[in-house]
Simulated scan of single mutants.
Amino acid sequence: MTTFINFALAQNMLMPIGKTPSIDAATRKPDDRPSLGSNGFSSTSHYMLCRRRRATATSRHNEISIPYRKGLMKAVAIKDIRPTQLTHGLREIRRKTQFYKSLSGQDLKMAIAEKPVPLVLGPDEQPFAIDHHHVATALRRAGIDTMPAVLVADLSRLSYQDFWLLMDNNRWTYPYNSAGQRKSFADIPEHVWDLEDDVFRSLAASVRDAGGYEKTTVPLEEFRWADFFRTCLPNPETEDEFLAVQRKAIELAKSKAAAGLPGFLGKVPG
């Protein structure tokens, strides 16, 4: 059983060590079917997934046990948070890590409290993040072990198979690798910091921050922009190449080619 910590009691635990759903069908790739069985899992991958999940569930350390209720903010150990995607953007994580390391005291506590991770409880009451994977990873890199969390749904009574099928149906998971290829749910790593680097995820975030498009409440927004840039732009391998591609991406984001994406700010000729 996963144990959550009362957020008020956990404030002092949020300091670094050593320092005082629904989107349109365009998200799915119709010509890229899951490499799974007819029920969403291969028998082998599902068996191994179940064994790994159950083994992890038995190794939880003792913490302050507080009932976890929907909508109530708590704190959860970052090491216990399970990811629901295969990739993240390392450039974005490094930027966020530097930001958290630059803060201390109440400023740090407030910055952490502003980004609670939305969770869905899965089988064995394991907490699965449906957003803020970058934030969780950055906090861990900054030496912070816990972060605030808010429960979105409790699916802990479902089997692993039904859990992932419902997560997929609600667009709460994105099992695509950095090449845009769909993979098995069993391929999703155990920890949020173990995800594969996707430079186009970082590109999508940097374009948004530069005003190329606006943030919306559409689930998986950055993934859709990342996949759009992936099909139109070369893969940058150096920092100079990234900056050059970023300038092109900002222009592309406001072109009519991006008109169907969430947060589009350009003008389409009528």
Rank of each mutant, 00 (worst) to 15 (best):
A129E: 08
C50Q: 14
R95H: 12
G122F: 04
D187L: 03
R33Q: 15
R33D: 15
L243F: 01
T97D: 08
H88W: 06
N62Q: 13
L119S: 07
P34H: 15
A210M: 05
V76M: 09
L203N: 03
K19P: 01
V199H: 12
D24M: 10
A249K: 05
Y174V: 07
A8N: 09
P236G: 02
R69L: 12
M15C: 14
T56N: 14
I64R: 02
R141T: 05
A205I: 02
A244N: 08
G37R: 07
A142V: 01
F229T: 02
P219T: 11
A186C: 10
G37S: 13
E214R: 13
Y68T: 10
F200I: 00
A249H: 00
R140M: 06
K96L: 04
Q161L: 13
V207T: 01
I130S: 14
N39C: 08
L233F: 02
N62K: 13
G211T: 08
R60Q: 07
R33C: 12
M15T: 15
A204P: 02
G71V: 01
G180S: 12
H88A: 01
A205M: 07
D124Q: 12
Y160S: 15
A129L: 02
F242R: 04
V76W: 03
S35F: 11
S102G: 14
K183R: 14
S255T: 00
H46R: 15
A57Y: 02
K254P: 01
H134C: 03
A75Y: 04
T97I: 04
F41Y: 11
P189Y: 02
H46F: 11
A257V: 01
K70D: 10
R247W: 00
D240G: 06
I130F: 05
L90C: 06
C232T: 04
S43N: 09
A257L: 03
D162F: 06
F264S: 03
I23L: 15
L151T: 11
F99V: 00
S42I: 07
L49F: 07
R53S: 13
P67V: 10
M73D: 11
G211K: 04
P118I: 09
G270D: 10
V135Y: 04
E190K: 01
M73T: 12
S35L: 14
G71L: 05
L36R: 11
D24F: 07
Q98P: 01
R182H: 11
G260I: 00
E63S: 14
E214N: 08
T87G: 06
S38E: 14
N6T: 04
D227A: 14
E190H: 01
S42G: 09
L72T: 11
D32M: 15
A136S: 12
Q126T: 02
I23H: 15
D124H: 15
D31K: 13
D124S: 15
F163E: 15
A249D: 00
V268A: 08
A138K: 00
W172T: 04
K183G: 04
K115H: 05
Q11T: 10
V150Q: 06
S38K: 13
Y160W: 10
M110R: 13
P234F: 02
S102M: 05
G260Q: 01
F7T: 08
T27C: 02
